[in-house]
């Protein structure tokens, strides 16, 4: 399990990185490498050019801009757990980050890499959809923002265009006093989830609920909750039009069964946690 050969670049500036990506149609961005390198070692991925973005310090920042928490693409899972801004304004992200893989993987893996990798059972795509995030993409001479809901296409597939780099994600900050919860089911802690649910409840906005690991991409089920008052009704509505995946990790009917429980627990906790 050794990778095929490739040409390696370690750009020091964003422009340089974008230039390198523009110049090749077989270039891969190397962020934390916690998804890309296993695939390269197994020779399931073999880019001709590897653009290592780990020296782009500008992508490694967390800040608040208005009602948005802006997280740079290169921010590691581990550093989100204890980040003061996250703890204060959006502790949900911290509790989600804690459940990703294991410590020696979290210290390296990045939020940008996770979003672009787009594993159906990954935590960050779910958070992005739940928190109506915008995703910032840049390519040589071009920059765009796209809603998370439009970014994820399917399992391991996004609308990222050739030559584009994900530079940041902008989560919408729920209002002070919001309630939030996250639940996932894994065989062992640190495994990719069989199913997961996350929820945010605010005084002045409709409730938000998203589920992951069940369909090939994270699903925003907030709409299903409109007008409902009891948790059992909400569970029923949220799970109704879901078509769970059937794979060796879990059969579809199993996902459906556990999803209801996860959604229920999540809603209950978020409602409890709201402005107490």
């Amino acid at each position: 399990m050794k990778p095929r050969g490739f040409t390696y670049h370690q750009p020091k500036t964003l422009d340089e990185a974008l230039g390198l990506l523009a110049a090749s149609d077989d270039a891969a961005v190397l962020a934390g490498g916690q998804s890309l390198v296993p695939m390269m070692n197994a020779r399931l991925a073999s880019p001709e050019i590897v653009v290592d973005i780990n020296r782009l310090a500008s992508l490694d920042a967390v800040r608040i801009e208005g009602d948005r928490l802006v997280v740079g693409a290169l921010v590691r899972h581990e550093s989100l757990i204890g980040h003061p801004l996250v703890q204060e304004r959006l502790p949900l992200l911290s509790s989600m980050a804690e459940t990703i893989a294991h410590w020696p993987i979290r210290t390296r893996g990045t939020i940008g890499g996770s979003l672009v990798h787009a594993d159906p059972a990954a935590q960050w795509p779910l958070a992005a959809v739940l928190l109506e995030a915008e995703i910032e993409l840049q390519s040589q001479g071009n920059a765009r923002r796209i809603d998370a809901a439009d970014f994820f296409e399917g399992a391991l597939s996004t609308t990222l265009a050739a030559g584009e780099l994900l530079t940041a994600i902008r989560f919408r900050l729920p209002s002070a006093g919001h309630g939030a919860a996250f639940r996932l089911l894994t065989r062992r802690p640190g495994d990719y989830a069989i199913a997961m649910a996350a929820c945010v409840v605010e005084a002045d906005r409709p409730r938000r609920l998203a589920i992951g690991g069940v369909e090939p991409r994270p699903l925003d089920r907030s709409g299903a909750l409109d007008g409902l008052t009891t948790v059992p009704e909400m569970i029923e509505a949220a799970c109704r039009e879901v078509t769970p995946m059937d794979d060796p990790r879990a059969p579809a009917d199993y996902r459906r069964r556990v999803l209801a429980q996860l959604v229920g627990d999540c809603l209950a906790e978020a409602l409890r946690g709201q402005a107490s």
């Binding site: 197994a42 065989r187 062992r188 802690p189 495994d191 990719y192 060796p248």
Partner: peptide, 14 residues
């Protein structure tokens, strides 16, 4: 279908 340690699971300390 169990060609990696993400597919062939063994019990850990937890």
């Amino acid at each position: 279908l169990s060609g990696s340690l993400a597919d062939y699971l063994i019990a850990t300390a937890t």
